[in-house]
Design a protein around this nucleic acid. Structure first.
Lengths: 118, 118
DNA sequence: AGCAGATGCTTGGTATACTTAGCACCTAGA
DNA sequence: TCTAGGTGCTAAGTATACCAAGCATCTGCT
């Protein structure tokens, strides 16, 4: 297994744009943080270019995500030593010591509602 | 001290050449396996060019080594991922492809509300 | 109205990753 | 001997990742 289901196989560009918008960063802001030009980042997000590994790493740093994550999204680390998304979210929540049991339940319930799981 | 200590601090090219020779492969053989031209591989091994991540991945496969190993050698995966709980939960959410940006936003907002962060 | 600043995008160019053709050297067989 | 095939490397070109300048649109401010 270790399957990567990818029913919603979005491209790397879309992934980056999603992450950028989640972080509430403009194209220019992220481009500056990652030390690339903003037109280039624009083109990358629209899938016109495949960024080099160095750029991927810079983007990962700027977005506070791991480089592994980006490489996986780019299809460069196909070997997913890394967990399935849903299990990942739920176990991360369960492991967070700052959350009370009730809060964990709430979060997980909301999460499951979103992904339509179970 | 990080856990690395690969023989010595040689460049990526030397690393590749060492691995190739350990596998008893000629330049052309490895180049064919990795689907690159042999002059290019020669230049990479001598440090004249930095191969793209795709090429690194192909080389890793051809040499039966992990892509992680190569990325580390290339200095692309230097750091360990920080393991703070909050980062864990938030990045797990961000990584879930089944969630829309709005849903991710909501979840993260709820989460931050619970842990009192920000 | 009009400017000012922010947004993302287009254009045209430069730098560099990568290829094809071929050279020089070596070793093995006929 | 002299091919024949293997080794790694050079040179010159093509493809593409990446950048600088600038455009069009929007929103907010006076």
């Amino acid at each position: 297994m270790s399957t990567r289901d990818y029913t919603s196989m979005k491209g790397l560009g879309e992934f980056i744009r999603t992450q950028r918008e989640l972080a509430n960063l403009s194209l220019r802001q992220l481009a500056d943080l990652a030390k690339v030009s903003n037109p280039y980042l624009s083109q990358v997000e629209r899938g016109l270019y495949k960024p080099s590994a160095e750029v991927l790493k810079q983007l990962a740093n700027a977005l506070h995500l791991s480089a592994e994550t980006f490489f996986m999204q780019a299809g460069l680390l196909d070997d997913d030593v890394y967990k399935e998304a849903s299990d990942q979210v739920e176990s991360a929540i369960k492991l967070d010591l700052r959350l009370t049991p009730d809060q964990k339940d709430t979060l997980i319930r909301v999460y499951r509602g979103f992904v339509g799981d179970r």
